[in-house]
């Protein structure tokens, strides 16, 4: 198991390095950064001065090395727009995004896994139909529309929950529902399919033949095997929620990292965009790694491969 973890960790670091190089190169793919910084109406000399000031005249690999070594110390340079350290800017916004992401995926899992298991135990029953309806609805409803409906109902008409901001835990309830409900259908369907397959497996029959009570059969013998693909999916969805919750963050004015990324792209604020891309990719890498470790723990066959 330890060898497996170390090997996966090594792979994760390699992927992270590759991603960091790509996100650094973006700066150069999007045109001459010096011209962008200098702004409109700058002459040749101004641009050359900026090029010298920011070190853009040096070889690219050297610049990458500089950027990487400062990035490792959480120094991503200064935002062109805010004139503040990018690291502070991101740290400020990331807490909101992380709370939202963790709440969103938890909500999705807590809703989807039990529903998927119940649907699989009684296929074509009322519970299965309801679960199917909920998942189709979740897949078909755009987040922005569902978010607005929730605001209209719970914030404006019933006045139970705030519609925007991130001041208290109550502000996170509606965004969590919108974000989590969007991720729920895939997890639910995968849990249901996995459980259906596993419940007809020979080893589940063996467990019953041993005289195991139904709860033990379902949760010890079946679910552990059925949940393995769900873990991988949830990891990807978690990464998506941390980076791509721009829509939900905008609707509920939750100014998180996703919203910052969207703003920074519009402002040509390259150091911020660069750092955010790196951070979002690292989230994916970390969650994929954690999912691999969790899966290896769940399924011993994966440890040797």
């Amino acid at each position: 198991m330890l060898r497996f973890i170390l090997r996966r960790l090594g792979l994760a670091v390699l992927v992270a390095l590759t991603v960091s190089f790509i996100s650094f190169s973006l700066l150069f793919l999007s045109g001459d950064p010096a011209i962008a910084i200098a702004g409109e109406g700058a002459n040749e000399n101004d641009i050359a001065a900026i090029r010298k000031l920011y070190g853009f005249d040096r070889p690219m690999l050297l610049q990458y090395w500089d950027w990487l070594s400062s990035a490792l110390r959480f120094d991503f340079g200064e935002s062109y727009y805010f004139r503040l350290p990018v690291a502070d800017l991101i740290a400020d916004r990331l807490s909101v995004t992380m709370i939202l992401g963790v709440c969103g995926i938890s909500f999705a899992l807590l809703l989807a896994v039990p529903l998927g298991v119940l649907a699989a135990i009684r296929p074509n029953s009322i519970i299965d139909r309801v679960a199917l309806f909920l998942s189709v609805a979740g897949q078909a409803m755009p987040s922005f529309w569902f978010g607005l409906i929730l605001i209209v109902v719970f914030s404006i008409n019933l006045r139970w929950l705030p519609a925007s901001g991130a001041e208290s835990w109550r502000h996170f309830i509606l965004p969590t529902i919108v974000l989590g409900y969007y991720a729920m259908p895939a997890i639910m369907r995968l849990t249901r399919a996995g459980m259906l397959e596993v419940l007809s497996a020979d080893y589940v029959r063996t467990a019953r033949a041993k005289g195991a009570p139904e709860g033990l059969v379902l949760f010890k013998h079946a679910l552990r095997n059925a949940i393995i693909p769900v873990v991988s999916l949830a990891a990807v969805q978690m990464g998506f929620m941390l980076g791509g919750s721009i829509v939900v963050e905008s609707i509920f004015a939750l100014h998180g990292a996703g919203y910052l990324a969207w703003e920074s792209i519009g402002r040509n604020d390259l150091p911020t965009v660069q750092a955010l891309i790196l951070v979002f990719s690292l989230f994916y890498i970390v969650f994929t790694f954690l999912a691999d470790v969790l899966n290896a723990w769940l399924d011993p066959r994966m440890r040797s491969s």
Binding site: D202, T206, G211, A212, P213, H221, N225, P300
Partner: peptide, 24 residues
């Protein structure tokens, strides 16, 4: 459930798939 495994036990045709892969 009290009888199964205790007083009457069963062995199946498929040894390759009759044991749970997740447990020792």
């Amino acid at each position: 459930r009290r009888l199964r495994g205790a007083r009457m036990a069963m062995i199946f045709q498929e040894p390759m798939t009759s044991l749970n892969p997740a447990y020792t």
